[in-house]
């Protein structure tokens, strides 16, 4: 199956070792951004070059790979990356969260709780949570070093001043084990609670910015907030129109030109699984 023109999982062995060393350091210092020598990958920046390199460094032939983009297994980005590794590593693939040993994700954490032994690899566009207010890399590094994180609250303050509530709804900043402030990648803040105490290994790769960071299993992750404006993992106030799930993250889908719309689980595997079990939402029969 493996395309013999490439080494296993596309990257050469030395590169994978370099990335693994960065990953080990990242796991040893949860939330700390480890620089790594990001390679050119056969895809544009912004399409998951960081995640792909981390995945390549972690894959072993026995792995079963799942790739999701905004929760869906069947979008172009997800399909392309899955095929890429099927071809270059010859690993088995799956769409079932429970069956996967390694899941590469863009912008979601699967609804089904992960278990020990699984690895979740996030694609990260901008790893530096302080970048919004402090453009100097030298200064943000110093701020991490000295735990000067007041600026993160300045950002949240601006949100409340402008919108009456913390309007940041994705890439919501978190503090890891009471030490490093971390950007959880652009997952919806609905997913933030799943970051904490997760049984799986969570790895974050930013290709363009050349940074890797990580959360080892069962790491405590707290979303930043104010005492009088506490963090809430909000989502649209609907149930899934297909499977009826009331506590999953939903996508809004426009269905016609007359303002018709439906809400469906963004996690396609989760939604399909529920429907197989017989759950039905408002439009469950028709879709």
């Amino acid at each position: 199956m493996t395309d013999q023109a490439y080494t296993f999982a596309y990257l050469d062995e030395q590169t994978k070792r370099m990335i693994r060393r960065a990953l080990l350091k990242a796991l040893a210092v949860p939330g700390y951004q480890v620089p790594f020598a990001s390679r050119e990958m056969p895809m544009p920046y912004g399409w998951g070059t960081g995640g792909v390199q981390v995945t390549a460094a972690c894959l072993v032939p026995e792995d079963r790979l799942k790739v999701i983009d905004q929760g869906a297994d069947d979008t172009t980005n997800a399909v392309s990356i899955r095929r890429f590794f099927a071809r270059t590593a010859g690993v088995a693939t799956t769409e079932a969260t429970a069956e996967a040993t390694l899941i590469q994700t863009r912008h979601r954490i699967p609804e089904q709780p992960l278990r020990e032994g699984q690895i979740l690899v996030y694609q990260v566009p901008i790893p530096e949570p302080l970048r919004f207010l402090e453009p100097r890399e030298t200064e943000t590094r110093k701020m991490h070093e000295l735990e000067e994180y007041g600026l993160m609250h300045v950002k949240l303050y601006e949100d409340i001043a402008r919108h009456g509530t913390i309007a940041t709804s994705y890439a919501y900043p978190v503090k890891v084990e009471g030490r490093y402030v971390m950007d959880p990648s652009p997952i919806p803040k609905f997913d933030n609670p799943k970051l904490s105490g997760n049984a799986a290994i969570q790895l974050f790769g930013a290709g363009r910015e050349q940074r890797i960071y990580a959360l080892p299993p069962y790491t405590a992750v707290v979303s930043l907030d104010f005492d009088d404006h506490p963090f809430t993992a909000s989502k649209p106030g609907h149930a899934c129109d297909l499977c009826g799930a009331a506590h999953s993250y939903l996508d809004e889908v426009i269905t016609d030109d007359a303002g018709g719309r439906m809400f469906v689980c963004s996690d396609t595997d989760f939604c399909a699984g529920r429907r197989r079990e017989g759950h039905q939402g408002r439009l469950g029969g028709q879709a």
Binding site: G150, V154, D225
Partner: peptide
């Protein structure tokens, strides 16, 4: 906020 104020 830099010295720890957390009440908006």
């Amino acid at each position: 906020m830099a010295i720890g104020a957390r009440h908006y």
